[in-house]
């Protein structure tokens, strides 16, 4: 696979995404749920909330990078975790 220049960090990133997808698929099969309506006023399932979390996290990371610079980037992950918790609790 060296001709595609894969690197460890990108591999870890995609493995985490894949694991999340598998986990949520298993959860959806084992514990089916009915969609609920949260603060956004839209019906969401666990999968929708995961999507909102991941997409939002991408923007949080970019905004953080733009404002604070690359050296402070790990802190953006902390904000993303808080954001994820908020999305899963209230959206």
């Amino acid at each position: 696979m060296s001709w595609m220049a894969w690197t460890q960090p990108t591999a870890i990133f995609f493995i985490i995404i894949a694991l999340l997808l598998v986990t949520f698929t298993v959860l959806a099969i084992r514990f089916p749920e009915t969609p609920r309506r949260g603060v956004l006023g839209i019906e969401t399932t666990r999968g929708d909330r995961l999507f909102i979390t991941l997409l939002g996290s991408a923007f949080i990371n970019l905004a953080w990078l733009g404002v604070m610079g690359a050296a402070m980037q790990p802190w953006a992950l902390l904000i993303c975790l808080v954001y994820a918790a908020a999305v899963f609790r209230w959206v």
Partner: peptide, 21 residues
């Protein structure tokens, strides 16, 4: 692959260097 390339730099010959963010 695009995600992968976004974090690297190349000067050709399919040799890539890690460039982070």
């Amino acid at each position: 692959t695009v995600v992968n390339y976004a974090f690297q730099d190349t000067f050709g010959n399919n040799v890539f260097f890690w460039h982070g963010l």
